[in-house]
Amino acid sequence: MVDTQWPVYEVFHQQARGEPHIHVGAVHAPDAEMALVMAKEQYCRRQACVNLWVAPATAILATEYQDGDMFEHATDKSYRESWGYKTPKTIKTSDEETSK
């Protein structure tokens, strides 16, 4: 295969209306319209698809893996999560009463 040196387009695939578009891979193509044509056969010939997005890979700004530590939590943030709280007794009682 010849290396075409065409730009890379990232491909996003939607399985059903209302579902999010999910990144599934990339294609080489001379332009965005052609990227859509290519993406259809590369990524939709075996799975359900209702909509495709392509975006030039150069349009994406990404973090550096070496900065990965910024995603770590240094202190307890359990107060942000529902499991970080005990269910108040009153609600429990009320539930139990309605189920009687």
């Binding site: 010849v2 075409t4 065409w6 294609v27 080489h28 056969e41 010939r45």
Partner: peptide, 13 residues
């Protein structure tokens, strides 16, 4: 086919 993507598209068609 001249490029991988087209190879797959043409075969699929």
């Amino acid at each position: 086919a001249p490029i991988l993507e087209e190879d797959i598209a043409f075969s699929s068609m």
